Computed example of a mutant assay.
Amino acid sequence: MNDHVRDLASVREATDRLLTSAGKLDNAGVTQPSHLPGWTRGHVLAHVARNADALVNVLAGRRMYASAETRDADIERDAPRPLSVQLQDVRDSAALFQEAGAAPADWTRTVALRNGVTDDASRIPFRRLIEIELHHVDLGVGYELEDLPEDFTGREIAFLAARFAGNPDVPAVLLTAADGRQWHTGRTQGDPMPVTGAAPDLLGWLAGRRDGASLNTSGALLPALPPL
């Protein structure tokens, strides 16, 4: 069961961590490449801010983005801004998201995201937490997958495993973390391929942040995962 109040608090804490890390950059550092191909750190920060706006729209029952083209254009527009402007935008948009999350609402209702995806309103704060935590890593400022809160890492592995579960293009896989936690994903038919490793490495592979080279597959090739 989703606890949106707890997740909103986690979003606030994660946002503060991201702002502290990004605040150590300078204007030149914002223009440097991030860990995401084709994106500078400015693109990442702009996306984090615009995603907050988009999720406010979702909670209000509006379209998440006017269009995919508008989403992309807004990020390109905002990416070159000076560091101080980037940080204030992330801070202000995060405050608006927290305000929307604190408003009285039916958290059991279904809300619409992008590309026909729907979800329970109560999971929107966790979706925002995913954006903050993973893009903090993407900034390339020393915050790594190993630095993510353990509870978040487990929940995000479960979230992504569920996303790929039943996908006919992904073979059956049994993920096992070093601490014994397990998750199934991929097709439901056939014996699952065992994939074991540290939880951050499992998350990195599922989220497209690592190639899975450090995972143990007993000699089998890791399957290609669909884009997120």
Score class of each variant (00 low, 15 high):
G219R: 09
R12E: 15
R163C: 05
P192E: 11
G38K: 10
L19M: 06
G101V: 05
V173L: 02
T70I: 14
T118V: 13
Q32K: 14
Y65C: 06
A162D: 15
G204L: 07
Q86N: 02
G29A: 12
R91K: 10
G142Q: 05
Q182T: 10
M64K: 11
V44W: 08
Y65N: 12
V137Q: 03
E150P: 04
Q189Y: 03
A178Q: 08
A105E: 12
V195C: 10
L222K: 05
S93H: 06
G208V: 00
V11M: 10
A60D: 15
V85R: 09
A105K: 05
F152L: 04
G186E: 11
W107M: 12
V90G: 13
F152S: 04
R155G: 11
V137C: 06
A14F: 03
A46G: 15
S218N: 06
E76C: 01
R155D: 15
D201W: 00
E76Y: 05
R210D: 14
A9H: 14
E76M: 09
G61I: 06
A9S: 15
R123Y: 10
T153N: 04
D7H: 08
T118R: 15
G197E: 08
D138H: 01
Q88R: 13
R210A: 06
A220V: 08
T176D: 08
R77F: 14
V30M: 03
T108A: 07
D72L: 11
L87N: 08
A54S: 14
A161M: 02
L18W: 01
L129F: 01
V170Y: 01
A14G: 04
G212C: 09
D106H: 00
A60R: 13
A165C: 11
E156S: 00
E69H: 03
I124C: 02
L18Y: 01
N51M: 09
L25P: 06
P80Q: 12
S218D: 14
V90M: 12
L148W: 01
A199T: 13
D211Y: 01
N51E: 15
G42S: 12
P104I: 02
M1V: 12
G190P: 13
H184F: 10
P80Y: 04
T70F: 03
R128F: 02
G208K: 00
K24H: 14
Q32E: 15
D179G: 02
N115Y: 11
T110H: 00
D211C: 00
S10W: 04
P226R: 12
S122K: 07
L129M: 10
A220C: 06
T110M: 03
N27M: 06
L175Y: 04
D138S: 01
G166N: 14
A60M: 06
P200H: 04
R81Y: 14
I157F: 00
L25G: 06
T153F: 00
V58H: 14
L203M: 04
